[in-house]
Design a protein around this nucleic acid. Sequence first.
DNA 1: TATGAATGAGTCTTCATTCAT
DNA 2: AATGAATGAAGACTCATTCAT
Lengths: 200, 200, 200, 200
Amino acid sequence: MENHELRQPVQKRAIEKKNRIIECGFKLMCEKGYHNVDCIEIAKVSDVATGTIYQYFKDKRDIFLQGLQKEASGKLFPILEFKDKKITKDTLYSTIDKIITVSIKKHTMSQIAHEEIMAMQHSDSDVAKIFEKYELEATNVVVELFEKNGLKLENAYEKAHLIIIWIDDLCHEIVYHKHDNINYDKMKELVINSIINLLK
Amino acid sequence: MENHELRQPVQKRAIEKKNRIIECGFKLMCEKGYHNVDCIEIAKVSDVATGTIYQYFKDKRDIFLQGLQKEASGKLFPILEFKDKKITKDTLYSTIDKIITVSIKKHTMSQIAHEEIMAMQHSDSDVAKIFEKYELEATNVVVELFEKNGLKLENAYEKAHLIIIWIDDLCHEIVYHKHDNINYDKMKELVINSIINLLK
Amino acid sequence: MENHELRQPVQKRAIEKKNRIIECGFKLMCEKGYHNVDCIEIAKVSDVATGTIYQYFKDKRDIFLQGLQKEASGKLFPILEFKDKKITKDTLYSTIDKIITVSIKKHTMSQIAHEEIMAMQHSDSDVAKIFEKYELEATNVVVELFEKNGLKLENAYEKAHLIIIWIDDLCHEIVYHKHDNINYDKMKELVINSIINLLK
Amino acid sequence: MENHELRQPVQKRAIEKKNRIIECGFKLMCEKGYHNVDCIEIAKVSDVATGTIYQYFKDKRDIFLQGLQKEASGKLFPILEFKDKKITKDTLYSTIDKIITVSIKKHTMSQIAHEEIMAMQHSDSDVAKIFEKYELEATNVVVELFEKNGLKLENAYEKAHLIIIWIDDLCHEIVYHKHDNINYDKMKELVINSIINLLK
DNA sequence: TATGAATGAGTCTTCATTCAT
DNA sequence: AATGAATGAAGACTCATTCAT
């Protein structure tokens, strides 16, 4: 009944083990939905014993939370990678295009995660907090990105936020490709032009 | 053993009862998340016995599905209400503004529903099917809407789809209002102008 | 909460209704097993409302019990029909053959009933009592039958009982016909001859 | 969600536990009837948690099925034990007598089991399959038994089958001893003589 | 009398978490 | 530190029985 402290892994192998649990566990949860994955599966896929999970994590939710912290920035907000990119007017279209291409690559996983996370925000304020933190960070990065490149940006935060959302949604549409009557290349073109328009 | 067919309520009181289960059940599921509501709670809130639920619904999931069918189109795609609206160039901005206002109202009522449903698409193909059906319908309505009003629309479906998504996202942002450094009125203005731009 | 008395049907239509419930209910229980039939099915097949059942029967078990009383003698012990048959040495074989033929006809239903009843005896002493009563009666009938026909029968009750059992089992084998390597006509012949032997 | 495979116990204690569940569970089901035992009771009597049952068994029915496989052959067909017995004409009567004695002993332990199983055959084809398998095996053993001992057996399978059934029924009668007017020793004598007659 | 919708106690089954090894 | 068998509370669902109409 004693309240065991969570162990902080120090040995290299132990650290690897913890990371594997976060990676595999968070991936599974994002792919299948939090409630559709059980701890036995996480343990199996992570190649650890079920008991080991509870040495590093308080509970199942803790895996998700730590996964969110660790994996989310790269996967949920790939735009962060473009932090230090140089942009000119001539390269604007192609840069946005590139951002979209990278985002799509990350997206297959991230969109489900995204929705799962959105849904979880309401029952779990910790999830909400972490997600907002990254969202804010991404907005800031975009603002800085365009400032650094000398782009005049009235209402910079509003625009940055919209850009992030629009790219994210576009990726979602392209990745899921649900509607046969929609030309997704054309849609991408429309989005890029709308973004450029926003930046004028 | 006997595979009892689900009862189709005919009496007024029975119909009310079934509707109450859909309403209360779907509402609860949307508010708290599908997995955070159990059938006992649904029964209690709907003021019926647990057994009664299973007279009208195959299982818990069936309540969600029927709720989705019955409640969702209005809540998820309020744009459908504007089907027969007259628009001119002069009223374009204000019409879009009105659509956004209505959408926000609906969104406020069903924010979580929206995300819960989005999240469930991936683990439940029936949910996905229903959602896609409404999405398609909404796109068609928007296309018709602008056609009827003589707006020239190359790539009509792509644009209609983007408009729906952008409005939806905007509403989401406004309703959640998470970031203090963002002026959501300005953001709305930007979105409306982007939409108008798209229609040029 | 009042303990309603069971109604004794007096009107012709009501009597028919009660009989229909016994017949259909008992038949279903014997065919599918007591626990694999529910009251809604019994009501449906009997073409009455579920509530009606409880006007004439204390509970589900009561239907079975009354079915046993009413249907059992004919179906479980078809030999009773041969009570007043004339037999001579010359007609002995053919009479037994006839008994077997009739028994087989009744058997499709009765064997499952038989086993269900046997199984229920242990958890239900009323079932046991009724069954034993009929078993005894059948034995007595067989004893009388052979006595009346002047057949010398030392250990008459033992033999009568064996005859009943053997015929019953034979019917079961023939009706179920499970084993391809067994010639059931030959088996019947063997049984008849064994019975005749027993009577010598 | 995950379809966890059933665990195959390897540790001694786990094997004991699984066996205890089969033994206690099957015993209870046989004694009280399949439907009159619930998993909580099985768990309690087996001295395990309810969850443990589902580590080794797919469901409640699976306990019964495995019990049938493991426990039943000996109990339902004790004749199998006499596989390698030597018999001569002189020992024929006493051998059959011995078979009956052993069968009665086993029968006493498993009377209800027997009937429960018989009754379940009709609603459960897996039970039927297992039962038929043993029935066939028993028939083959009897055929071999008499062949090995040089007994001429026309219609060997039919006779073997009858012998098995007759012994089984006799045991049943003796164990239940329901009818006061029947001399069960005499009945046994009659059966043995009928069997010997069959073998002539 | 008859109806059949409604009831809710009773079951089976799952799965996050613990703990003896 | 690690294991994975064991736990049991919690949840979905069934069905004999009741009762308002």
